[in-house]
Nucleic acid binder design. Structure first.
Length: 463
RNA sequence: GGCCCGUUGGUCUAGGGGUUAGGACACCGGCCUCUCACGCCGGCGACACGGGUUCGAAUCCCGUACGGGCUGCCA
């Protein structure tokens, strides 16, 4: 039987990094085994489910390149199926109606905890067959009373729980809607899921689900419970995939980071999508939880900025710049700028912030830098510089290079004498790519214009 | 409270009876240099603790501590 896995988020929030990693591991597992990756939206919580979250989850999958192989399944479309299955269980005696009131259960819970029987309060109606007409009822499943259940987890190893820990949990609420632990089983079985790969927070639920499989007569799938990511719930980590995209992370960086958080293949850090598909396996997944570290995410992203084809990266950066309201053309100049800026920022966002002077008509110059570098003593060199640059036949890097170096030679100075003043004049600050390429990429009109502005500043300080 | 799971530098991790405990991020120092980056070189820094088992334990077993999860008519 070929591998079929699914990622099953609830649409009660955006897709955050933890969910994205679970989805990724499922996706990689499917691709590695040449199987299917499915997406199921768990939208049975009518209070909190929202369509905008569904859209965002789908959008995130598309952006990350993890599109499902079949139509997305919505649990809300399948209510009849769950009810039908629940009826079957009542019929077969594996489930029963419970007419207890909340108060009765609460009281029994206290007694149960006190007496050491931890689940007795869930079995109040297990052996009764009266059917009071004036009370609502839920449907509970009959949990095994003795023995134990064991799951052979592909990540966590063998885990066993005694029957006394197992409760007769609710499978149908009093309003007739099914609960999570029931839907999951019905859906996974109905969708022919072979491997359930999900967060470790569901490890204990697995035992409950095991007896649902049994009652329904289904063969349980294989399980792999991924360690949780800590440090995510704070301000930073609960951010959505989209927010990282807006910061300028690229999918290769995010995917690589996520893959390495909880999974390893020896000492290797950088993995392409194809390598991940080829090498990924549950045996490489760590059992212990990890912590989100934005510094490392940035490093991965920076590595991938440097690895992508310049044309490809320029195209993505152009899209990003447009979203940030920069008017840029996707032309050779942008490719050139991309080529030099890709090593100067760890995200598209940083690349943008470090290079905005290439895209703006007007720049603001840092006052301290002006004070320090646009000084009267370089007036003469500066004037001459503008003259010789203006006389250039071709505005290209090589010619700008020789022209400026000649000028420095003639004045018996090193490049250092003029580099920073020119930078401040043309970019507004003291850090930029190489001087000559910066001038070249700025374009003659902008460069000369800003140099003249710089000259004015110097002149105003000579008086 | 009960049950389940986890614990290698600040962080991600390799290693699973005998290793100078390896790599990566971050950090620090140096080199490169027209600035800032990139790159390169070097450095700091870890087997949670206590008992066993063994000639020998980071590695196997037990306990403790700490962290996390579950214990809902949330998912």
């Amino acid at each position: 039987m070929s591998v079929r896995v699914r990622f099953a988020p609830s649409n009660t929030g955006y897709l955050h990094l933890g969910g994205a990693r679970t989805a990724l591991f499922n996706y990689l597992f499917a691709r590695h085994h040449d199987g299917d990756f499915l997406l199921r939206v768990e939208d049975t919580d009518q209070e909190r489910s929202q369509e905008k979250y569904t859209d965002a989850i789908l959008d995130a999958h598309e952006w990350l390149g993890m599109e499902p192989d079949e139509d997305v399944v919505f649990q809300s479309d399948r209510m009849d199926l769950y009810r039908e299955k629940a009826e079957d269980l009542i019929e077969s005696g594996d489930a029963y109606r419970d007419y207890s009131t909340e108060e009765e259960i609460e009281e029994a819970r206290k007694e149960a905890f006190a007496s050491g029987d931890k689940t007795a309060h869930t079995r109040l109606w297990r052996d009764r067959d009266d059917e009071p007409e004036d009370r609502d009822s839920v449907v509970r499943i009959k949990a095994p009373l003795e023995g134990s259940l064991t799951v052979e987890d592909h990540v966590q190893g063998e885990v066993t729980v005694d029957a006394e820990e197992l409760d007769d949990f609710v499978i149908l609420r009093s309003d007739g809607t099914p609960t999570y632990n029931f839907c999951v089983v019905v859906d996974d079985a109905d969708m022919d899921i072979t491997h359930v790969i999900r967060g470790k927070d569901h490890l204990n639920n697995t035992f409950r689900q095991l007896y649902v499989y049994d009652a329904l007569g289904y063969e349980p799938p294989e399980f792999g419970h991924l360690p949780l990511i800590s440090g995510l719930s704070k301000r930073k980590g609960s951010r959505s995939v989209q927010e990282y995209r807006e910061d300028g992370y690229i999918r290769e960086g995010l995917v690589n980071y996520l893959a390495r958080l909880g999974w390893a293949h020896g000492d290797q850090e950088l993995f392409s999508r194809d390598e991940l598909v080829e090498l990924f396996g549950l045996d490489g997944v760590n059992a212990s939880s990890g912590e989100f570290d934005e510094d490392k995410l940035q490093w991965f992203n920076a590595e991938w900025l440097k690895k992508l084809e310049a044309d490809e990266l320029a195209e993505r950066w152009a899209t990003y710049l447009h979203k940030r309201d920069f008017e840029v053309e996707l032309d050779e100049r942008l490719v050139d700028i991309t080529e030099v800026m890709r090593a100067r920022g760890q995200t598209l966002g940083e690349m943008t912030e470090e290079s905005d002077y290439f895209f703006k008509d007007e720049i603001e110059r840092n006052e301290d830098d002006v004070e320090e570098w646009l000084t009267p003593d370089i007036l003469e060199m500066f004037e001459e510089l503008i003259e010789v640059l203006a006389d250039l036949d071709d505005w290209d890097r090589g010619d700008i290079d020789t022209t400026i170096r000649d000028l420095c030679d003639r004045h018996g100075e090193g490049l250092g004498a003029i580099a920073q003043p020119v930078r401040v004049a043309t970019t507004g600050g003291t850090s930029s790519p190489g001087l000559f390429e910066t001038l070249a990429m700025l374009g003659r009109p902008r460069a000369l214009n800003r140099l003249n502005e710089g000259l004015e500043i110097i002149r105003s300080r000579t008086e």
